Amino acid sequence: MKQVTALALDGVMTFDLACAVQAFRHGPGEFGAPAGFEMRTCGVRPGRVWTPNGFDLHVEHGLEALAEADIVVVPGTGLPSLPVPDPVLDALRAAAEHGATLVSICVGAFVLARAGLLDGRPATTHWGYCDLFADLFPAVRLDPHALYVDDGDVLTSAGLSAGLDLCLHIVRRELGASAAAELARWNVTPPHREGGQAQYIPDSRTRPVADGIAATLAWAAADPAAAKDVSALAKHALMSERTFIRRFKTEVGTTPRRWLEAQRTARARELLESTELPVEVVAVQAGFGSVTALRAHLRAATQTTPAGYRRSLRR
């Protein structure tokens, strides 16, 4: 039996903690217990743990429980940029030295990074916090696109439900694919999601505040298939192509070609999410012209294929 200990710090996000509970404490069936794991939850000390979710927790164990764990799970907290108490960092380092596997869910990666346990390693966290994480911990090889990263004895997940993806991965790694598939069915979730968290990041359409070329941008964003190339954009703006490119870079901060590709990708995502149109039609309506071009740009933006993107959003 593997001993799993989850660390509930003040401010713990109970959804993150529940991902571990569903994987390591409650197995398939009404009263099922997962074979192969025993799980308990600890805090800095036994007793009350505050959460930002409208209720508090009571834990029976303090940090000493980490010394006995085979797997330590660190859920995120509501304020990940705050300092972590030194005794917590020391206990996590000691658990790592004793051979425990360390797992973070969502912004729990901030805690592991503060302990220095992610230095030089690949890791991920919630996409909304990746910029902050990269600024605070430049020594970590941050992958902002992954749903989770398995680096052997240290594993990290992206935001929220990606924690369940990671926990299912650990079950698969420890107990095999059949056990993970059965647990996934009980939790009404796919055993493995395609792509990474990039497919869930809102598309960033530039909305310039100045008048300038705003009308042309609005036209191209509404119908990227009509804006075939940079010359079409310049013609709509009643400018020479050279003048348009110079104005565009000044007002938007990127090149017209890159911006237009982003609009086409965003339009393709909308169509894949909200319609049943064949992929070939989506490619044409988004302005790519070919499925090959659509696949290449969508994979660059979301780390998955058009079919995979549509399936993951429909689930």
Rank of each mutant, 00 (worst) to 15 (best):
A181L: 05
V72G: 01
H297N: 10
V107P: 07
P28C: 02
L17M: 06
V282G: 08
V12C: 00
P34N: 01
H126S: 07
S231H: 09
T5I: 14
E194Q: 12
H61M: 02
R242V: 14
H192S: 05
W50I: 14
V21R: 13
V103E: 03
V59D: 04
T51I: 01
L168G: 11
V74M: 03
I213V: 15
R93L: 07
L118W: 02
D229N: 12
Q22Y: 12
L155N: 05
A177L: 08
G27D: 08
A95L: 13
R25E: 13
E270H: 13
A300L: 12
R310W: 00
V107F: 00
H126I: 02
G108R: 00
A91E: 13
D153H: 12
F133H: 08
H26D: 08
F288N: 04
H169N: 11
G163A: 08
V279R: 04
S157N: 08
T206L: 13
G43D: 09
G76F: 01
A222T: 13
E273M: 14
G120H: 10
P34K: 03
G43F: 09
P52Y: 12
A158C: 05
D211N: 13
K249A: 15
A8Q: 07
L166C: 12
A162Q: 06
A65I: 15
V88H: 06
P87H: 05
Q3K: 14
L112Y: 01
L92S: 06
L117V: 13
I170Y: 02
F55Q: 09
D211W: 13
C106D: 10
D223L: 12
L272V: 10
D150C: 03
E174V: 11
N53L: 09
P46A: 15
D119V: 07
G36H: 07
K249G: 12
E174N: 00
G54Y: 02
P34R: 02
L183A: 10
A109K: 02
